[in-house]
């Protein structure tokens, strides 16, 4: 019948329209559907029905652990009275060598005698070039560079705001633990394994080599994918 297809389509639209109100009613007794954390989580999962809008900035979608925005540098938790603790970065340059857009600049610190010191003197990231690919964080052997979850970076002037220097980039470990708890925990364990492997090496030269290799492999596995 001519016109049947259109009517059928309109039925779908009306279903959607009514469905949004039905879901409102369903949540009416449970603290309402909007600005309610529980309702919000259900609404954004596959089980959600009806209106699925995220009322940003009042409601914000949580960022998953692996979420990647502009990178930051991890430092130790700062001692009282100071803003940063000890840098984890050793200025080894692996993040620079793997960065596809070449947006990282590192100046390695020097000892008084002119020898290189494993610490960055300066560290810059041009976030106008950064493609948030996360390769730096993935390949950093010291867990020193991580991808941030803070995406609210809009600015009025890019010449001052868009080159992040070391001061701007450094954030304490506690921040990383906060935004990505499981990842941070897995890294802790992996680091401990690596430490243990090192001491073993010192204890018995030549012996226990296989154990050590197995542990390093396990660390790699743990580190790269299985748990976070």
């Amino acid at each position: 019948m001519y016109g049947f297809g259109i009517v059928k389509g309109l039925g779908v639209v009306i279903n959607h329209f009514i469905g949004s109100y039905i879901d409102d009613l369903r949540w009416a007794g449970k603290g309402g559907r909007y600005y309610n954390e529980e309702a919000f989580n259900v609404r954004q999962s596959p089980l959600g029905e009806g209106v699925k809008t995220v009322f940003y900035p009042e409601e914000k979608l949580s960022t998953p652990e692996r979420f990647r925005f502009v990178p930051f540098l991890v430092t130790d938790d700062p001692p009282p009275g100071q803003r940063w603790g000890h840098d984890w970065c050793t200025a080894c340059g692996i993040c620079v060598k793997v960065c596809p857009a070449q947006c990282i600049w590192i100046e390695r610190a020097k000892q008084p005698n002119g020898r290189p010191k494993s610490q960055p003197e300066k560290f810059f990231i041009d976030i106008d070039m950064c493609m948030n690919c996360g390769l730096c964080a993935e390949f950093c052997p010291f867990d020193a560079i991580k991808m941030d979850h803070d995406y609210e970076l809009a600015s009025y002037d890019r010449s001052t705001a868009h080159i992040h220097d070391k001061e701007r980039l450094s954030k304490p470990l506690s921040y990383w633990r906060e935004i990505s708890p499981k990842k941070a925990e897995a890294e802790d364990i992996a680091r401990k394994w690596a430490e243990a492997a090192k001491t073993k090496k010192r204890d018995k030269d030549g012996e226990g080599r296989e154990d050590r290799i197995a542990e390093v492999a396990a660390r790699q596995l743990y580190y790269k994918g299985l748990y976070y």
């Binding site: 995220v54 940003y56 900035p57 914000k60 979608l61 925005f69 502009v70 976030i127 106008d128 950064c130 493609m131 948030n132 995406y151 609210e152 970076l153 809009a154 600015s155 009025y156 002037d157 890019r158 705001a161 868009h162």
Partner: peptide, 14 residues
């Protein structure tokens, strides 16, 4: 200016 590559929708709204 909204940084990001690409900025998520929430970043754009920001």
């Amino acid at each position: 200016y909204v940084p990001g590559c690409p900025p998520t929708p929430q970043a754009l709204i920001n």
